[in-house]
Write a protein that binds this DNA or RNA. Structure first.
Lengths: 133, 133
DNA sequence: CTGGGTGCAAAGTATTTGCATGAAC
DNA sequence: GTTCATGCAAATACTTTGCACCCAG
């Protein structure tokens, strides 16, 4: 029994083998788009349906068990929910890294400029990863 | 002859009435998604095709005449290309505002943490606009 | 057992493409 | 006149839904 069984249940999600494998894939790879995830799931479940992937992604998003990250010029990727963080995306190979930054100062500056009451900040850096430079 | 005629041509785009109107709509509204834009264009051109909207959005994106902004939990919007800036999105009414912020410091901090050579930063704040608070 | 999940097929939505006609330059 | 854009229809891609069957709890 995998660690994630209880965590899935805590989010009111039954711990099916498919869900455990999605969780495992995201844990291992960090960030995956639907296409990647489906390809990887097919290796474990030869008859898994794309509909199952979509249904699970959506229900896991609603449960805030995972989160979507929208990437400029690329498909959205999904990641397990963890402490708030930013992302760096390689424009050459697509590699994505998490970056932990304190955005409170810039967020306050932004609130000083607009009349918005800002609650969250999504920040994505684009550039070249170490290998692609 | 509209101001934008020459600007379109400078981007190697013929200044058709449809393109001038897309430009005008983006100039007036700041940010529009495909649906909004098509609805607005239909008022001016009763037989405009959605395909024309898509073709023009894509060619204008390639020419860097406009840019796509990916919004959390919403459809992408498009805006005329201008100096780099961030966005604030109202999670209640969808209103979007441009915010000019100096991100160089945070970008440098990020480069210190990862081995990425960062070229651009996309930052979207979500919260409540003045009216919706 | 019972409720919810899975897989399949079909439907729905979004986006792109091919082609004949028409407009910009 | 030549090149490129438009509009339509068809094709493709992406995502959701309905339903019968099956599994987790």
């Amino acid at each position: 029994m995998n660690n994630y069984t209880e965590i899935l249940r805590a989010h009111n999600l039954k711990a099916t083998p498919q869900r455990l494998e999605i969780t495992n894939a995201l844990y291992t790879n960090g960030h995956m788009n639907i296409e990647n995830l489906y390809a990887m799931m097919l290796e474990k479940f030869n008859s898994i349906s794309l509909a199952t992937i979509y249904k699970n992604i959506n229900i896991m998003l609603e449960a805030a068990f995972i989160q979507e990250v929208k990437i400029p010029n690329a498909k959205s990727v999904y990641e397990l929910t963890k402490a708030s963080h930013s992302h760096a995306v390689c424009s050459n190979c697509g590699h994505i890294e998490d970056i932990t930054l304190d955005l409170s100062s810039i967020q306050n500056t932004a609130m000083g400029i607009t009349d918005f009451k800002i609650e969250t900040s999504d920040l994505v850096f684009s550039g070249l990863c170490k290998k692609c430079q």
